[in-house]
Amino acid sequence: MEPIWLIVIFAATALAGYKLIRQVPSLLHTPLMSGMNALSGVTVLGALCAAGAAVYSGSRFCAYIAIVLAMINVAGGFGVTARMLNMFKSKKEAGGE
């Protein structure tokens, strides 16, 4: 893909993301942030590409570490977000009156 398109994509998604995230109430900002942690683990895609392209064993090892770190982000981020969101209960669910 041409470099210019990559920059266009970056700008467009950043703007769209900004608009979407402004709708999230402050009540949910902590789960939002941990969810964003999970999404920043998307760099696992780059790590997979890098691992596939790596020839030297040293660089391949670097790529493996990158995969593990990014995957911790993905799994940890989504996991902890799900845990938090499941704690949010309305009055009825919480067994109130």
């Binding site: 970056f10 998604t13 993301g17 964003m36 999404l39 760099t43």
Partner: peptide, 10 residues
């Protein structure tokens, strides 16, 4: 690039 952009904006 796209998902990174969203996280950055957030």
């Amino acid at each position: 690039v796209a998902v990174g952009g969203v996280v950055g904006a957030s």
